[in-house]
């Protein structure tokens, strides 16, 4: 691959996972990881396994919940879905992220006087 793939920025994985679950509804870990890679246009280099500790933390915070179910291919899988608290958290994190990136963008635009 010629293009450089970026690591997921620390702290953004929560945001990506919550957004994915809000957009697509209940999904298993593999589905979430695939979706994140696809949306990023395969520019994000995600060790798919790291999604599981992240999911655990989100669940402990009460932002998502999980339930065992059966996948399309008739396989037992754990499905994660977002809770009302998780939706509120997502709104907060989206705002936070947009504010941060706007600030950084403004700095990058400044030119030497």
């Amino acid at each position: 691959m010629v293009t450089q793939r970026n690591e997921v920025l620390p702290g953004t994985l929560n945001l990506l996972v919550l957004k994915t679950l809000v957009t697509l509804g209940p999904l298993h870990g593999y589905g979430i990881a695939r979706r994140i890679e696809q949306v990023s246009g395969d520019l994000l280099q995600l060790n798919q396994g790291t999604i599981y500790p992240a999911l655990l933390k989100l669940e402990q915070m009460g932002w998502i919940r999980s339930k065992w179910g059966v996948s399309d291919s008739n396989r037992r899988a754990r499905y994660y879905s977002v809770t009302p608290r998780g939706r509120r958290q997502l709104v907060a994190e989206e705002e936070e992220w947009q504010r941060t990136s706007a600030i950084v963008a403004r700095f990058l635009k400044t030119e030497k006087a």
């Binding site: 298993h28 870990g29 990881a33 798919q48 396994g49 599981y52 396989r75 899988a77 754990r78």
Partner: peptide, 12 residues
């Protein structure tokens, strides 16, 4: 459960 979850991930 964790082992199951990882196994089903890999299988998919």
């Amino acid at each position: 459960e964790l082992a199951d979850e990882i196994r089903s991930h890999l299988e998919m």
